[in-house]
Design a binder for these strands. Structure first.
Length: 622
RNA sequence: GGGGGCGUAGCUCAGUUGGUUAGAGCGUCGGCCUGUCACGCCGAAGGUCGCGGGUUCGAGUCCCGUCGCUCCCGCCA
């Protein structure tokens, strides 16, 4: 005990005197009080979460960010009169004494449920008018109201927790990145328009009439320049802006990526760096759901063939197979004719384990018709006199022998079914993938308690643009072709088959059918870059004009480098178990890219427009 | 830009074949209530049936248009 202690009265005496020492708003947080605090005088501030007025005794659940504490007032309390006037969501400061709840009235659901605060004084800090959206409870409300009153929605437990979780996930990503030697950078928000990819958001320049900045679609060129600048390992929680239409898993306008780039690396090095980070956050925040221990690598072509998509949900065990050989020349004329008449024609089988009933098969068939397809052929297998036989029109026409061969190839048994799609795979693979998903859902084959992650690799470098009859980049033009440089440089630009078969060193991470990120080993050689653009029909002047800065940088000593950019919003969405990004974004825009709360976008004043050398033209009819 | 779904009280929803004064629950407001925690009981207010037009003796209901929200296609690392 020091001498000073003698001069200081006991704390509880100080509190009782109602002055000095007590903080203006609170001595404790609302989630803090426990049985060990019984007897102490406390001050809490928060929102009136729920009020239960029994006439003679009044309960107020006081809420702040940290939790709930039950306040009690009765007619003996000087604060009783004020307490009776309180309404939901008023913000108050409450003084009182912590006491234990009477025997049998404890609330085990609440961390503070053993105690309550007997109110001695109430100060109203902020009144609330009638609420357009209740904070108490978890009833569904229309999205436009939720968005307009986002701050109320954010007070609710569900969204509040999602946003906290988002912050924790980002903390964890940052920590994991730094632990691996990545260094965080900030790149410009006002930058130059990048001619490929999505539509840009443009910002008019005041100083340069008729010129515009663009918001970055991603810091792609900057991160490559950071590598050229010799920094070796870059990362950033990067805002990205794209003026494209929204989807449930695609925010309009803006979103965040864990953007990263590394020098002197191969694809394996990138995978080795990124996989533990992604797996780590899924394990840390996945509520115990199983996470893929080692992400399988699935070539793009294999993914299309087995799953009908380059973002497969691997929780769905169904794998499709090409069964063209079984149908070629068979009695099932529709398919036989397709195979005969079209060199690219194929028949794919989609097994449906335990889907072997006519009712289910007919239901799938109607579903397919609803999807604009002629139908969905099927065979279902049943026991007949101890033998497993195929049923349905396809089986009847195909014949027992071929049906049995099919059954054996697909490993099906009685009680199972198989569906068929036929035609040019390029045209039907998306539908086949949709059917695979539908079958998986309908038959409840998808284990919801898993995060199944994988790498999709070997994306095609180019694709055929049927409309313009030319070769296009299939993804971004900065990827390195997966071919030794001298072989690539020697390619004949007219050798379409060889060029369309080229792979890029490009990869995606996919989780439960959601594309989480995509990346590549970059093309760091100007000569290869020029050739790559030439193949896509861009001559050197275009390249110079659009990517001149980048090209120069690559010509002045650029290290081989590569990276990837996992989408933060989507990771958080999966980890929060949400199927809509708006549930994990603090202040999201609606599907039409409007901020209903802030009123964005909005008109500019005449003065602003004049300064920006902009005239607004409203388009007339047509 | 295109297609689907939805739109009835602040919210969730019911509303029969087109037929009298459009209902319920929750919320709000008022009253009662001393142990609740989805408190309870009684009562009240609250409606341009999204909007506009049409058909009809009569429209929440049928038709056309339009607006809003949402999901999808197109688009999109």
């Amino acid at each position: 005990m020091g001498a000073a202690d003698v001069l200081v009265p006991h704390l509880s005496l100080l509190f009782q005197s109602g002055e000095l020492s007590m903080h203006r708003y609170r001595s404790h947080k609302c989630g803090e009080l426990r049985a060990t605090d019984i007897g102490s005088e406390v001050r809490l501030s928060g929102w009136c979460h729920r009020i239960r007025d029994h006439g003679g005794v009044l309960f107020i659940d006081l809420r702040d960010h940290y939790g709930l504490t039950q306040m009690v007032a009765d007619p003996d309390s000087p604060a009783f009169k004020v307490a009776e006037t309180l309404r939901s969501e008023w913000v108050v400061r409450v003084d009182g004494k912590v006491r234990s709840r009477p025997e049998g009235t404890e609330n085990p659901e609440l961390p503070t449920g053993a105690v309550e605060v007997y109110v001695s004084e109430i100060e109203v800090l902020g009144r609330a008018a009638e609420l357009p959206l209740p904070v108490f409870g978890d009833a569904d409300y229309p999205e436009d109201i939720r968005l307009r009153y986002r701050f109320l929605d954010l007070r609710r437990e569900h969204l509040h927790n999602n946003i906290i979780k988002r912050g924790l996930i980002i903390d964890s990503l940052r920590r994991r990145m730094k632990e691996q030697g990545f260094f965080e950078f900030q790149t410009p928000i006002l930058t130059a328009s990048s001619p490929e990819g999505a539509r840009d958001y443009l910002v008019p320049s005041r100083l340069h009439p008729g010129k515009f900045y663009a918001l970055p679609q991603a810091p792609q060129q900057f991160k490559q320049l950071i590598m050229v600048s010799g920094f070796d390992r870059y990362f950033q929680i990067a805002p990205c802006f794209r003026d494209e239409d929204a989807r449930a898993d695609r925010s309009p306008g803006e979103f965040y990526q864990l953007d990263l780039e590394m020098s002197f690396v191969t694809q394996d090095d990138v995978f080795d760096a990124v996989e533990p980070v992604i797996r780590g956050v899924f394990e840390e925040f996945g509520d115990g759901k199983k996470v893929t221990p080692k992400f399988p690598r699935i070539p793009y072509g294999e993914a299309i063939g087995k799953y009908g998509t380059d973002k497969p949900d691997l929780r769905n065990p169904i794998e499709m197979q090409d069964v063209s050989d079984i149908f070629r020349g068979s009695g099932f004329k529709i398919f036989a004719r397709i195979l005969e008449s079209n060199a690219k024609g194929a028949v794919w089988a989609i097994p449906a384990p335990k889907g072997g009933s006519r009712a289910f098969c007919d239901r799938m068939n109607s579903w397919a018709q609803g999807e604009g397809q002629p139908g969905l052929g099927y065979i279902f297998f049943a026991l007949d006199n101890g033998a497993t036989v195929g049923r349905g029109p396809v089986a009847n026409n195909l014949g027992a022998e071929r049906t049995e061969k099919l059954r054996a190839q697909l490993g099906l048994a009685d009680g199972d079914a198989v569906f068929f799609v036929a035609g040019d795979p390029q045209a039907f693979y998306k539908f086949a993938g949709a059917a695979r998903s539908k079958i998986g859902e309908e038959l409840d084959l998808i284990d919801k308690d898993r995060f199944d992650l994988c790498w999709i690799v070997d994306f095609p470098m180019y694709e055929w643009n049927e409309e313009e009859k030319k070769i296009d980049f299939s993804h971004n033009p900065f990827s390195m072709p997966n071919l030794p440089a001298d072989e690539f440089l020697a390619l004949d630009s007219d050798d379409r088959d060889r060029i369309l078969a080229l792979k890029a060193i490009q990869y995606d991470i996919v989780c439960n059918g959601v594309e989480l990120s995509s990346g590549a080993i970059r093309n760091h050689r100007p000569d290869v870059m020029k050739k790559a653009f030439a193949i896509a029909g861009y001559d050197e002047s275009v390249l110079e004009q659009k990517f001149g800065g980048m090209l120069h940088a690559l010509s002045l000593g650029a290290p081989p480098h590569g990276g990837i950019a996992p989408g933060i919003d989507r990771i958080v969405m999966l980890l929060c178990g949400e199927d809509n990004l708006r549930e994990v974004v603090l202040f999201p825009m609606n599907q039409r890219a409007e901020d209903l709360m802030m009123g964005a976008p909005s008109e500019a004043t005449a003065k602003q427009l004049r300064e920006l050398h902009i005239r607004v033209v409203t388009s007339g009819p047509g």
